[in-house]
Amino acid sequence: MLANQRYAKAEAAAWMALLGNIGIAAIKGGIGMLGSKALLADACRSASDATAAFVSLAGLRRCRQLGAFEAPVPAVKGRTEGASGVFASILLMIMGLEIGISAIKSIADGVEDGPGWPAVTTVIIAFFIKEIFFPVKERRLDMYASIAAVVGTGVAALGEPLALPVLYYFDPAASLVIVVIVFANGYRIASMSVLKNQHIQEEPADINELKTAVQRIEGVVTVEELRAKEHGHYVIVDVVISVNPRITVLEGNEVARRVKYFLMRRFLHVTDVIVAVEPYDPGYPYKSNHDPNQEQMPTLMQ
Rank of each mutant, 00 (worst) to 15 (best):
S106M: 08
G110A: 07
G110P: 01
V111N: 07
E112S: 09
D113M: 14
G116K: 11
P118H: 10
A119Y: 10
A119Q: 09
V120M: 11
V120A: 11
V120C: 15
T121M: 12
T122W: 02
F127N: 01
K130P: 00
F134E: 05
V136T: 12
E138Y: 06
R139E: 15
R139F: 01
L141Y: 01
L141T: 03
M143N: 09
M143W: 12
S146V: 06
A148G: 04
G152E: 04
G152K: 10
T153D: 05
V155F: 14
A157C: 06
G159E: 13
G159W: 14
E160N: 14
P165F: 01
V166R: 03
Y168C: 07
Y169R: 11
D171R: 03
D171T: 02
A173E: 03
S175V: 04
V182E: 04
G186K: 04
S191F: 03
S193D: 09
K196F: 02
E202H: 03
P204L: 04
A205S: 11
N208K: 12
E209N: 13
L210I: 07
K211W: 01
A213K: 10
R216P: 01
R216K: 15
G219R: 11
V221A: 06
T222D: 15
E230H: 00
H231M: 11
G232R: 06
V237I: 06
V239L: 10
V240K: 13
I241P: 05
S242G: 05
S242T: 15
V243I: 15
V243L: 14
V243W: 04
P245Q: 11
